[in-house]
Design a protein around this nucleic acid. Structure first.
Lengths: 247, 247
DNA sequence: TGTACATCAGTGAACGCGCGTTCACTGATGTAC
DNA sequence: TGTACATCAGTGAACGCGCGTTCACTGATGTAC
């Protein structure tokens, strides 16, 4: 709006990247979507080689055989590309988990939890750099914008749904330390879940990420010899904690 | 040894950084140790601002008011400095934990575990970048050398000692999935600990790091409203798991 | 205690590199009449 | 169906930056006799 209009035609050039084309079905729009995907794919490949923080727009352009400046037709900046990758990672992980849980008998909640846990670890092992991108140390100088939050929430949401299945309540939320520390979560679930069960859920959630992070980031080397096997056994114990709790 | 000796005097220049001075008590050696510490301190300050992966020798030199090449009298490369920082972080954390545990009655193992857990989280909260450096996603392009392993081991060692106190055994190790997955750890403890207890120990260990990582890396925002309070409650439950198990 | 020599810390210039981002441009594709 | 114009994708040069590392050097500090 308040942009300077010194030059005649091309003054709107700068903010071009973010806006999609008008007609969703148009040829141009389709080609644009394809190239956007290709850029993200190349970025993913690069991340797999040297990690998220050394992701370089120039290297991506090189790989795709285009001028480095051309990337700016698709992403306004390196940060915007990073954001897109983060969202994609969350969405991909959430899709994997949802699909795995959906394949299991809805009544067998132990099995559902096991499916969830396995899907989480499998995705992490197969996409270690994407995992590090979203659950490892934050990329320096990058601040995740609001856009990522909705996608990020989809992942724990899957466990929350599981909890809801067995620990619904209409009782008033007790006023204690647990309800204080989990205030945000309690609001998020619209006060429909037993607080003790919610607490166990968060603990198990943490253990899942702890197990996966310790494994992926190399802290199980020479001690936990077979992390997959250990994970499998931990699943059983975690399932008990998260399913069998009584509020 | 096989280095080219084109020039007369200074040919041994290159490998100067790693070798300490001869006399430990000499003035030069003391000054050298001080400056080494100052470099590491500056590096720490820089890390606190922008993370470990953007650590720059030039920036450190600038902060200390010296030529960037002078750093090479103290550290042979950026990687060597990183290694030193990693070792320092492990050592500092292990010292904190050991000190905290030592302050508690040796017979009260619940209290000992609580002290350990609290010391771990407190250190992490106070040194978030050091924590990320050692327990977050690995710094791209950096491979931790053997030197770090001994220091790294000191941290879980503290929990192991706690476990040994209550779950010593001379029974033969059973041949099952658990003993297979934990083979490395079992060897490390010289087969003197109950395997079930060891498994619980690893799980609790993972939960501790999961809780801290999720908190520090921003995944508790808006859900776990008071992470410290929640951690405190989780400690009690984790202590039961790790102390009260019977093999 | 004094002198000759070796060692060491620190300098400043330079090499070679890669990066994000901007800019004015050319040509192709779409749109309105 | 054809023409005029606006939009868009992509180019290539350039700006300005910071980085790790090497090198030949100067001067100060330590060591051996």
């Amino acid at each position: 709006m308040a942009t300077s209009k010194k030059k005649t035609k091309q003054s709107a050039d700068t903010t071009q990247a973010s806006g999609a084309s008008k007609k969703a079905g148009g040829v141009r729009a389709r080609v644009r979507a394809e190239l956007t995907a290709e850029i993200k794919a190349a970025a993913g490949r690069q991340m797999a080689e040297s990690g998220a923080s050394s992701l370089s727009l120039r290297a991506i352009a090189r790989e795709l055989g285009m001028a480095s400046s051309a990337i700016y037709r698709y992403f306004a900046s390196r940060d915007e590309l990073l954001t897109a990758l983060i969202i994609d990672a969350y969405e991909d992980l959430a899709d994997s988990i949802d699909a795995a849980v959906a394949e299991v008998d809805a009544d067998d909640r132990h099995a559902q939890f096991a499916a969830l846990a396995r899907a989480l670890r499998t995705w992490a092992v197969n996409n270690p750099h994407e995992y590090a991108l979203i659950y490892g140390s934050p990329v320096p100088g990058y601040a995740a914008p609001q856009d990522t939050i909705a996608s990020a929430a989809r992942v724990p949401q899957a466990l929350l749904v599981l909890l809801m299945g067995g620990h619904e309540t209409t009782k008033p939320i007790p006023k204690n330390d647990l309800s204080t520390s989990l205030a945000g979560l309690i609001d998020y679930t619209e006060r429909s879940i037993d607080v003790e069960a919610l607490g166990q859920g968060v603990e198990v959630w943490a253990e899942l990420f702890g197990l996966i992070s310790l494994e992926l980031f190399g802290h199980f080397t020479n001690t936990v010899t077979d992390p997959e096997l250990f994970f499998e056994q931990a699943i059983t114990r975690m399932a008990s904690r998260v399913i069998d709790t009584t509020g």
